[in-house]
């Protein structure tokens, strides 16, 4: 891949759960399927999507090549460390999210 112009990459932030969040995950899967580099960060109510079996759209997004992380602060705040995460979902903190945000060519879409 040429470094002449950095490829765009997406940082998607999901803070909700439920029907509209599943639509956002479908957006994410479309982006990933088109070959975009897509990082999805689940925070606030959005961490519930990362629980194993909770979302139909998240495994599809991961299968399309997307990457997903659940917010460690939210998991701790909501006493969700015992909850099983969907295979492929990692956890991270806001420091790494800031690093991704600051990478050149990153587009952020926040739901």
């Amino acid at each position: 891949m040429t470094q002449d112009h950095p490829a765009e990459r997406y940082l998607l932030v999901e803070t909700q759960s439920g029907g509209t969040a599943e639509r956002f995950l479908a957006d994410a899967a479309t982006l990933a399927g088109a070959g975009e580099r897509v990082r999805l960060f689940l925070a606030g109510d959005g961490v519930a999507l990362g629980i194993r079996g909770a979302s139909a759209g998240l495994p599809r997004f991961l299968g399309a090549g997307g990457q997903a992380w659940a917010d460690e602060f939210t998991l701790a705040h909501r006493a969700l460390h015992a909850a099983p995460l969907t295979p492929g979902v990692r956890t991270t903190g806001m420091g790494e999210v800031a690093d991704w945000l600051l990478e050149p060519g990153t587009r952020v879409v926040w739901h």
Binding site: T15, A43, G44, F73, T74, G93, M94, A98, L101, L102
Partner: peptide, 14 residues
């Protein structure tokens, strides 16, 4: 919701 909380945390990190 925790929108402001998340914004303050991201602001701090940046």
């Amino acid at each position: 919701t925790d929108a402001l909380t998340t914004v303050l945390r991201l602001t701090q990190a940046v």
